[in-house]
Design a protein around this nucleic acid. Structure first.
Length: 282
DNA sequence: CTTTGGGCCTGGACGC
DNA sequence: TGCGTCCAGGCCCAAA
């Protein structure tokens, strides 16, 4: 479920709570999510101090003492709840699979009904060559991501641009919603062949990807604040999307008549829904 | 090598 | 009310 902005929002919620604290107790209420939890995960993490909470693509990376890194993916339906010291931690529900009790009295609960999430352990020096990361593309919000870089990565690709944007080897962290949104803003058809789009248009696309992701993170930040007083799930803010989920509605700036044109169109690409305006996206 | 399609899971919305 | 079908914001892997 969460794309880059949601994961980043969760990271920002976790960072001040986890950093500097020690893992007092790790509770695993089942033996696997999408993959089995690493062997002796509990034993390996308990007692270690948390040094940093980072993000790469849609993964949270919790760095601990002993060069240990907890790799944490939220899948489609993952939610994180944070209980501060003194908060009452409710009895675990059906899909509360992981609980982390920290030395500072805080408790982190990971809930994931569909269990597409993942937790793994690695040593920090093996991260660059780790199977989950060695082929991952550039961070879209990084300085190194620009039109030229994207053009290079798309060179020779016959795939439709929407699918290419969702390919984590091309660029990291863009998922189904923001792929549609960014293409709309850039005026590029989701069906355009990735390798045949001009550098100028790809530069616009990169700029729109950065803008929409930043905007969503900002929106997430405000919900973070709201959640501080509640125990609600982090990262489940409702963004107002321009095209996503708006089949049949007019797109802003389109002066065409919805009854004649049908408005925003929904198509399926690679088994996933894409929303776009055929009149404004070519 | 690239690209496609199926599978992994559960739950909620909808139609009959 | 119940049952079936479809859909969901991610990712992996086998097959073509």
């Amino acid at each position: 479920m969460p794309e880059l902005p949601e994961v980043e929002t969760i990271r920002r919620g976790l960072e001040p709570v986890m950093t500097g604290a020690t893992v007092a107790c790790l509770t695993l209420r089942r033996k696997n999510l999408r993959k089995p939890f690493p062997k002796d995960m509990k034993k390996r993490l308990e007692g270690l101090k948390i040094l940093a909470v980072d993000r790469r693509a849609k993964y949270l990376l919790v760095s601990l003492e002993n060069e240990t890194v907890l790799i944490w993916h939220l899948g489609m339906s993952g939610q994180v709840r944070i209980y501060k010291k003194g908060d009452k931690v409710p009895k675990p529900e059906k899909h509360d699979h992981v609980q982390i009790d920290l030395s500072n009295g805080a408790t982190i609960v990971f809930t994931d009904p569909r269990r597409f999430g993942l937790m793994d352990l690695a040593q920090s020096d093996e991260m660059p060559t780790h199977p989950l990361f060695k082929n991952t593309g550039p961070e879209p919000l990084g300085r190194g991501f620009n039109g030229k870089v994207l053009a290079d990565r798309l060179k020779g690709k016959a795939t439709e641009i929407k699918l290419a944007l969702m390919d984590q080897k091309v660029v990291a962290g863009v998922g189904n919603i923001y792929a549609s949104e960014a293409l709309f803003r850039a005026g590029i058809s989701p069906k355009a062949r990735a390798g045949s789009i001009s550098l100028a248009r790809l530069s616009v696309l990169v700029s729109e990807i950065k803008k929409i992701l930043k905007k969503a993170i900002k929106a997430g930040g405000s919900t973070l604040k709201d959640h501080r007083t509640t125990d609600g799930g982090l990262g489940y803010f409702q963004n107002s999307h321009t095209v996503y989920g708006r089949e049949g509605q007019p797109c802003p700036g389109c002066d065409c008549n919805v009854r004649r044109t049908g408005g925003i169109k929904r198509i399926v690409q690679g088994g996933r829904a894409t929303f776009y305006c055929p009149r404004r996206q070519r």
